[in-house]
Design a binder for these strands. Structure first.
Length: 278
DNA sequence: AGTACCACCTGACGGC
DNA sequence: TGCCGTCAGGTGGTAC
């Protein structure tokens, strides 16, 4: 193994916190497993800056002395209930994640907000950059409406899927990532879905027929579910998936071709030009 | 309406 | 070793 391969291998291993739907679902499960029904002693803020969309005081007041009693998620947004009509809403931007920890030497770097429980453990909102958000809302459903979020990509039945996209036009890549129609799919997983469906990213969405739409809907569900079952670690996805090989020039897992990279709206898009023809 | 591009932020990495 | 340019999975706004 040469140096470049070793380097790629290491970055693949340590790469984490890719907050699209599967990642946020794993954060939610992590919170559900560790952080529920424990009395909150207080909240500490560390360079949280513009992450906070509610004042520190509002967040602290909503959490202190309370317990998280429920969790929910829509797309890439997650919610923890702290009281009657009080929910902590979180979005993780490009680098955020949640981490439950006990010993001080386990505190993650870049813990922007630390929720401390009376028993001595903590839940960190970790983010290297300040692109995510945290706020208090009285109802996740209102929050969803206010933010113009479409139905969750994992929950949406086919009839709703078809309806919410019926007048939609443009590249299939952009359509999949439009959070106002179907929420939760980002740049990474849209690449995987298109690879599985063998659509070129620039395929016009409006050209898809009923059968193609049905297949797309099924594949969205399958890909997201598979990722969640593997803790949203791209390197653990099945061998016939694109994501473990999402790198320019790498061998396509389905044919003898090589993976290409193009730009769409300034985002890096990876696909196999032999499998995914326009 | 769809697309391109910039801005928001800041760490990580490659090249020199 | 260090400086500098480039890039990154998020969203939102603007201009065409």
């Amino acid at each position: 193994m040469d140096f470049v391969s070793i380097h790629t291998w290491i970055t693949t291993l340590v790469r984490k916190a890719m907050p699209e739907l599967p990642d946020v679902e794993v954060f939610r499960q992590h919170a559900e497993k560790h952080a529920m029904n424990k009395t909150i002693r207080g909240v500490a803020y560390n360079d949280a800056g513009k992450l906070l969309k509610s004042p520190e005081q509002t967040i602290s007041r909503a959490l202190k002395g309370q317990k998280f009693t429920r969790s929910s998620r829509t797309g890439k947004h997650m919610f923890l209930k702290t009281g009657e009509d009080r929910w902590l809403a979180m979005h993780f931007g490009m680098t955020g994640y949640l981490k439950y920890w006990k010993d001080t030497d386990k505190r993650p770097d870049f813990s922007k907000v630390i929720i401390g429980f009376e028993e001595g453990s903590n839940l960190s909102f970790v983010s290297k950059r300040k692109l995510g958000e945290m706020k208090i809302t009285d109802d996740p459903e209102d929050y969803r409406r206010e933010n113009g979020l479409g139905m969750d990509a994992l929950d949406i039945p086919f009839s709703e899927f078809r309806k919410s996209l019926e007048d939609k036009r443009g590249s299939i890549k952009n359509v999949l990532m439009d959070q106002s129609r179907v929420s939760g799919i980002g740049n990474i997983y849209s690449d995987e879905i298109l690879f599985q469906e063998k659509w070129h990213p620039k395929q016009r969405f409006e050209k898809l027929d009923e059968e193609a739409l049905r297949s797309l809907h099924k594949t969205i569900h399958r890909v997201l579910k598979t990722a969640i079952n593997r803790d949203a670690r791209p390197s653990d996805l099945p061998a016939n998936y694109l994501l473990p090989n999402r790198e320019e020039g790498k061998k396509c897992p389905a044919c003898e071709g090589k993976i290409s990279k193009i730009k769409i709206n300034g985002r890096g898009v990876y696909f196999c030009p032999d499998c995914q023809k326009l």
